[in-house]
Structures are given as C-alpha cells and as structure tokens.
C-alpha cells in the first residue's frame, strides 16, 4: 500500500505555491562543497556557512542550504550526522544547551535570526517544532492547543480561542477524534494522536515554518502513514523541514532532500533525483544500504 503511494510521489513531486512569496532576493550561490543546488528561487529561510560546536567538538561543518515557501525539505543521514543539531539551529533551540555555539548566518525572510535584535520568543512562534517523541503537556487536549495562543496573546475572547483550537485540531486532522474529549488529558491519547496534538499545538500559533525532528520514529506504521498524509496537507500553508531516519519517508513526503554525513551537508537536490541518481558516492552508499 505504501509502495504505491511512494511511487506516485516519486513520479510527480508536487510544486504548489498557493501563497505568492515576496520578490526573490538576489540569488547568490554560496561558496560550498555541497553537491547539488543548495539555493532556491524564493527562499523563506537561508542558511550560510553554519558551524555548530558542542564545547570543543564540532557537530556541523560549514552547512549552507535554503528553504523554500511551501516545500517539504527532508534531511537524511546516518545517526550522529548532525541533522537534528542543524534542525535545532533553525529556531535556536540549541540556545537551551549550555555548551552549544553556532556561527554562520541563518536568515528568516532576510532577518538574521542570531542577531542580537532578534527576539527568540517571536522567532520560535514563527518557526515551530515537533519533536521525536510526542510531548504533550500534562494538561487537557484543549489546554495543550490553547497554550501557544494564550502565552502569545493571540486571542482576545474565549470564542476566538475556541476557534483557533478547533481550526488547529482540524488542520492536524485530529478534530473528529477528540472533539468530544477536549477536556481530557492530552497524555491519555494514543501515540499517533499525541503527535498530531503536538502538531496542532504548533499550528495554533500560526508559524511560517514547522521543524519536525523524526516525528514518526516513536509511532507504528498506521500512525506514521496518517502523519505523512498530514505533512503533505500542511504544505499548503507552511514550509516544513523534516529530519527522518527512514529513506522511504523522505521519498514519500518531501520535494527536496538533503543528505548529511558526519556534520557535513554532502548533497542536496530534488528528492526524485537524489533517490534515483545520487551524484556522490557517500549518498549512494547510504541510500543503497551500505551503512547507516
């Protein structure tokens, strides 16, 4: 069943752009060792020459890549290759790690997110994140989704908040399943529902980009398929960057794929190209299962 779908996706990588992006900035190909084209025409986010250190150890080495509007970009690579680390740079979640240090330039719609003037709270509201293990707060389903809008003051009235919660849950495809149990604890849902609740929670603050760190690794195949469908739907409104261990998943959900190896970004390209015709030996070895 999954194979059929995968085949469809591989043949026609969809490129819908509902929201017209602002005028493209002047594209300047960065100086990089990465094989393939790291830039896109209309990037929402650009990263240039990013290095990340944990204390003395360098975890990310000179990575440059763009993220386009309304695309799903997947990052793959063997464990410990730095893909999760890189993802956590994009909304500065690395700030919470004492020893982590990030250099290089990461811009969201032209604004340096590591600039002193950039407010990390606002940044994270615009770049949401979904984690490997579903982490609903030990509160009710409703409160989980309402949490973001509440802290950011997005709703003036209770009715507005109710609406945001409902819309978010609908977009996350969870509304039908939980509409009668909104006041039950979010931790009581099944694993897949919990993860969709976390996605709804992110959507509720209306971000531009959603980062997903192996969102399906703790889920069973059925729940995984449900989330993958959801990711495809969400692309209508958001850019999504997904780190995944599963090459099939990358192939199924993403338009572009980036391959990381030991902190280096080895190769970037259209998902279909990377999977069918990788340029680099390392990429090919990984894709054909020689290691990883």
């Amino acid at each position: 069943m999954l194979n059929q779908k995968q085949a469809v996706l591989l043949e026609s990588p969809a490129q819908t752009n509902d929201v017209p992006p602002p005028a493209p900035a002047k594209i300047q190909e960065p100086d990089t060792k990465t094989v393939g084209r790291v830039t896109v025409d209309k990037p929402i986010m650009t990263t240039r020459n990013v290095d990340v250190y944990y204390g003395e150890k360098q975890a990310i080495i000179d990575v440059s890549i763009d993220i386009a509007y309304n695309e799903v970009l997947s990052m793959i690579g063997p464990s410990g290759c730095g893909k999760s680390t890189f993802l956590r740079c994009l909304n500065r979640m690395n700030d919470t790690i004492e020893s982590a240090r990030v250099t290089g330039k990461i811009e969201l719609e032209g604004h340096d997110i590591y600039d002193k003037k950039t407010d990390v709270v606002t940044l994270r509201a615009r770049v949401g994140m979904v984690f490997q293990k579903p982490n609903p707060f030990p509160k009710s389903v409703y409160e989980n989704v309402a949490y973001g809008p509440r802290i950011h003051g997005l709703a003036r009235k209770q009715a507005e908040l109710d609406e945001i919660v409902q819309t978010s849950l609908q977009r996350a495809g969870l509304w039908e399943e939980v509409k009668d149990r909104l006041s039950e604890p979010g931790t009581g849902l099944s694993g897949g529902q919990q993860q969709r609740l976390c996605i709804a929670r992110s959507i509720a603050v209306n971000p531009d980009i959603i980062l997903m760190d192996e969102p399906c690794s703790a889920l069973d195949p059925i729940a995984t398929a449900r989330i993958e469908e959801l990711i495809d739907e969400l692309r209508q409104n958001y850019s999504i960057v997904i780190v995944t261990h599963s090459m099939q998943q990358a192939a199924r959900v993403s338009q572009r794929t980036a391959y990381f190896h030991l902190g280096d970004l080895i190769e970037v390209g259209e998902t279909s190209t990377i999977f069918t015709n990788p340029q680099e030996k390392l990429t090919e070895d990984y894709l054909t299962g020689r290691f990883g």
């Binding site: 407010d119 709270v121 606002t122 509201a125 615009r126 950011h152 003051g153 997005l154 603050v205």
Partner: peptide, 10 residues
C-alpha cells in the same frame, strides 16, 4: 497579524 499580536504583548 499574528506577528503583530505577538509583538504587542512582548
């Protein structure tokens, strides 16, 4: 509007 709302409370 979302960004503005966030900004207003910041």
């Amino acid at each position: 509007t979302t960004a503005d709302k966030i900004q207003a409370n910041l």
